[in-house]
Design a protein around this nucleic acid. Sequence first.
RNA 1: GGAGAGAUGGCCGAGUUGGCUGAAGGCGCUCCCCUGCUAAGGGAGUAUGGGGUUUAUAGCUCCAUCGAGGGUUCGAAUCCCUCUCUCUCCGCCA
Length: 425
Amino acid sequence: MLDPKHFRQEIDETTKQLARRGFELDSNTISELEERRKSVQVKTQDLQAERNSKSKGIGKAKAQGQDIQPLLDEVSSLGDELKAAEVELQRIQSELDAIIMSVPNIPDASVPDGKDENDNLEIRTWGKKPTFDFEVKDHVDLGEQLGQLDFETAVKITGSRFAVMNSQVARLHRALTQFMLDLHSQEHGYTETYVPYVVNADSLRGTGQLPKFEEDLFKLRSEHEFYLIPTAEVPVTNIVRDTIIDEEYMPRKYVCHTPCFRSEAGSYGKDTRGMIRQHQFEKVELVQVVKAEDSESAHEELTAHAEEVLKRLGLAYRVVNLCTGDIGFSANKTYDLEVWIPSQNTYREISSCSNFGDFQARRLKARWRNPETGKPELVHTINGSGLAVGRTLVAILENFQNKDGSITIPDVLHRYCGFEVISPT
RNA sequence: GGAGAGAUGGCCGAGUUGGCUGAAGGCGCUCCCCUGCUAAGGGAGUAUGGGGUUUAUAGCUCCAUCGAGGGUUCGAAUCCCUCUCUCUCCGCCA
């Protein structure tokens, strides 16, 4: 949610900024509603003030044993008028809220203009793409040949876009999460945290998935309005919802491993083969809650922490600065980490590191107390995958495949896996 | 799942025959005074969000908030309804 000031004093500038990302702000409707909100709110509050003072007068008169009937007559007409004004104000306010809640964040000045992913800006690359003196297989063929990756059984159990892993591949998958959690908690200063995988609607509104993107979520059929989490970002960021954090506890840095559930509505034709796009996948998420002045550097830092995982695994990757047309709804800037996928001869997203500024914090009412002013100030939130575990598994299988179909495991994982090579079972 | 009790400011804790109570008192915290040091003492301040005015995140002023939402009333922390959560006991259970 943007600062309401953007819609009052700076509506033209805001419209222009949002146009950069292809969002058309209905500034006329907003301005009109604002005008009406203002006059009705003033009227409502005046009436409330009048009622309050008269009611106090009645109380006093009664205490002194005076006849209060004339006073009562005086106030009787007030009630209906006030009620009407309150209802009207609420109607305008909720109409305004509905519009404002669906307005995306304003892109940072450093975000390149563009329409879609083709306009994203490559910032840097790392590592050497592997070369093969044999025909490379993709992870689906590799996994099936190893007898350890089984999509058909997953279809039977549930349906498409799920996977069954066995033996060494399953253990590698577990080892990856352990490695990532250890790296971030032991070396990068994040607090490991465990959170619910089922969240309420308030939490999803706080981080921006609702009200606009409900169709991407799995909603539970229960008496409560519950959803499966699409990312750990939701429960972890909501830790600070409705709180005022003492300065000594800033910044907050969390690392959290969770499964993620996405309905993938609207992406039916995309990545239907293999583990790239699943309804259920594991992710290790990094979340930072920082002061406004620190958010830019924290965003760079968090991105570097995610990159470190790829470096230690020896996977070639690149960092791209998403263009205005490709950044997410709540973000003001996003770096995607894209890992080299040999079978596709291209880089594929494996992490998305975003700075949300105060956009989420305003929805979350997440603040910290500035001792200089004594006043609460909105925090800035930053998060990124560190990394998507399923896609990391894909990258390892494909990049470190050998001619005989075995997989060489990166050194850093040996102590987590207990083996150095995956061989057919 | 059954029975009962409860939810008030940073914390503890008054307030339930509705009326200067946005909220006593205490603790904590901040500032000031006093004080050879220490200890003690005296005074002042100490919620959040929003609106109007304003160059202003200054000041002034108004509104809302006593778990959440709704209702009764001139007036609700106090009365009524719904929901949520917490605690105790019983049952069940990883």
